[in-house]
Design a protein around this nucleic acid. Structure first.
Lengths: 190, 190
DNA sequence: CATCAGGGTTCACAGCTACGAAACAGATCG
DNA sequence: CGATCTGTTTCGTAGCTGTGAACCCTGATG
């Protein structure tokens, strides 16, 4: 989204509040704005077309990286992350929920056990087993459950080299990973 | 950190790997690089001094939002620094904690021993061994434990002088370069 | 000059615990 | 009845921790 600076200062503020990426076109002789967040960039006019395009592309990529970061789970046990989702059985849904609300932080085994089984405490290994099963379900979404030994678990984005294309890997028939609409990105050529 | 582009492409790559913010000074007539990174920006030369300064300031702000410039360890033994983290086993977590609270200062061996083993003190070698193991774990984060002979240890950012570029030749895209800790060796001069 | 001692680093090893993974059995639900 | 969900058991493996010993560097000593 392009904004003239300083003429359209109001517009800039509105976009910033709604976390929409924006490129400020700074008029000649005007000092550049201060306090940029990662979704804002500026360029001084006049500027070559290719430079403007380069900055717009960079903004677009950054915006993906910034927005896509937090998974969500609804009351029906459907967990969404990025462009895809899975439906989880009750126990794993509660487990996932406990991990999602503390996304990126360590959640102790006791905390997990209490969120999943509020009353009785089942066997000691159950938690591990369910973590294992949840791991398998979340992997295709690009989510990973990291182990913090003798402490607990942490839900994270799966660290992976840049060109990640989760689509069509193996999917041994009857798999249950669903994709939302906008699956394609990268290479905004044209 | 300023980098000429495209002349100092190697330098840029090195900084990117270590998550150090950088401003590329793009020579006239050269197409701008594809910046995917929130810690990277570029400006086309020649440019007014004030514009360069504005971009540097913006980078600094972003870098604060994105990385931790001071190591931090939580109750679960997870130590965060820069853009990444490691989980530490109990003993090393206590050791790291004692070093982190005095980040940048020398911590005596006795102090360390007492924080790690409040009660009985195990063998005499144990501390050294755990320092060694902690060193290895912290290296990938860009942290180094310096030895101050017959006094103690000091936790620091691992700064490597610019003159010495170890191996690191072409690195064919998306690989993992592990710099040996042999690289940082300097006279404590005390 | 050779040797030695102190301090530090690194390795190999052994006991132990926690976790991962598979296989199985009851439960539930269509 | 078949499929899925759930809990249990079991076993193998990887990680944590302390110990001992070899090695290296530096400064002191005979």
């Amino acid at each position: 989204m392009l904004v003239r600076w300083p003429n359209e200062a109001e517009q800039r503020k509105r976009l910033a509040e709604r976390h929409i990426p924006r490129l400020l076109l700074v008029d000649d002789g005007i000092p550049p704005p201060e306090s940029l967040d990662c979704l804002e960039d500026w360029i001084r006019l006049p500027a070559p077309e290719s430079d403007v395009r380069a900055r717009i592309d960079a903004l677009r990529i950054r915006s993906r990286a910034h927005l896509r970061t937090v998974p969500e789970i609804d009351a029906h046990g459907v967990l969404r992350f990025g462009s895809s989702w899975v439906s989880l059985p009750p126990v794993e849904a509660r487990l996932a929920d406990a991990l999602v609300v503390r996304f990126g932080a360590v959640v102790g085994r006791d905390t997990l056990r209490r969120s999943v089984w509020p009353g009785t405490a089942p066997g000691r290994n159950v938690l591990d087993v369910h973590v294992l099963r949840l791991r398998r379900r979340l992997a295709p979404l690009g989510l990973a459950i990291r182990t913090v030994r003798s402490r607990g678990y942490m839900l994270e984005r799966a660290e992976q080299p840049e060109g990640m294309v989760p689509v069509l890997s193996e999917t041994p028939a009857g798999d249950e990973v669903h994709l939302d609409d906008e699956v394609l990105e990268a290479a905004p050529a044209s």
